[in-house]
Nucleic acid binder design. Structure first.
Lengths: 197, 197
DNA sequence: CTTCACATGTAAAGCGTTACATGATTTG
DNA sequence: CAAATCATGTAACGCTTTACATGTGAAG
């Protein structure tokens, strides 16, 4: 009956992954995402809390009330990976990632920019350039911070691999933005098509 | 009342953009996407047809029945950009693109790969490398094809800008995959953490 | 007469964010 | 006691894909 388990979501697995770093509450998971996989992954509370319940119903995580929820505030429910949960995580980690066609609004605007001409297109390129340069610096800082804070953590190499992806991408695309600016400069003198006000 | 028009979707604008290249039916739009912005944008029929109706209701496009729908098959409804539609497109093109945090499943798996060890992580890196190298070749072919087919089209420079984005990205990430492979090779001898079967 | 290619359209389901509602504890 | 922080949870909404339903004409 359930021969094709073509799963759609990765939220469950991402939470299992986070919990493999140690027991955490839903609130802490959300915070931890920002400090770890936040550069290439997001989850909202609206996803996290229901998913944790679902995972617990499947026996993949186990929870217990924790009164010392950070020394103040409401008591938190701390979730921990169970052995079946770890098994499931490993299983998923062993399967090739699905690729997804992404939507890139900047490229969409640039593609149609003959409609507004090179000056406006250059604004997009400049914004992109600034963003990529800032990203590059940020990734550098993350790389240094991780290396300094967890010099001996066995997972550090894997974390750095993801940081260097961001670094490589930012660098390459900052250079692309430069080239784009130069190219637009070259066609700048000409007028845009169509009627303008 | 409607002081904040914080729109969420870009489907309308993407269709206006496509129609700025010439009148087209919904079916043709879907095909054209694959040949133009398909590397960084997708739209499904389920979006295209209702959106075209919505655009027509707003007077941004105008349609008419076309019996010669490619010489065979059902007659098609061909949509054309109106002047207000072109105005709206230009307006949107002039506004900076919103950035979106993307989800990257490969990086998610690599981030947590200490759980399964370097060998399995290398599989992900190899798959990524192959994908980026194929992308690079594909972008090269697109660049050559566009340049040959539309050597004098005024929008060619803009189209090439988006192709070179893909090229720069693919090249940089293929190199990252190589570095990653080398790094994982280095830590290869060590054993993965935790218990394994 | 079946299949293919062309072509339009809707309904349902899945995924995800945002906004809202609630509660507890500490600090000023 | 007001505000801030910590914390959980749900409901509503919006976007997008997938699956389905339908129709037409040409070619084999």
């Amino acid at each position: 009956m359930s021969a094709d388990d073509a799963k759609k979501t990765t939220t469950e697995e991402s939470l299992l992954g986070l919990l493999s770093m140690g027991p955490m509450s839903g609130y802490q998971i959300k915070q931890r995402i920002g400090e770890s996989i936040g550069n290439f992954w997001t989850e909202s509370y609206g996803q996290i809390y229901p998913t944790l319940k679902r995972l617990e119903a499947q026996g993949l995580v186990a929870s217990k009330d924790e009164e010392t929820g950070g020394e103040r505030g409401r008591p938190s429910r701390v979730y921990a990976l169970t052995e079946p949960g770890r098994e499931r995580l490993r299983e998923w980690l062993g399967v090739p990632a699905r690729s997804q066609v992404m939507r890139n609004e900047t490229l969409l605007k640039l593609f149609f920019s003959d409609e507004i001409g090179p000056e406006a297109a250059m604004e997009h390129a400049r914004a992109a350039k600034q963003m990529f340069e800032m990203s590059e610096q940020r990734y550098h800082a993350i790389e240094a911070g991780l290396t300094k804070q967890w010099p001996n953590h066995p997972a550090l190499p894997y974390w750095l691999i993801t940081v260097r992806y961001g670094l490589a991408q930012s660098r390459a695309l900052a250079a692309w933005a430069d080239d784009t600016l130069a190219e637009l400069e070259r066609i700048g003198p000409q007028r845009a098509r169509g009627k303008h006000s």
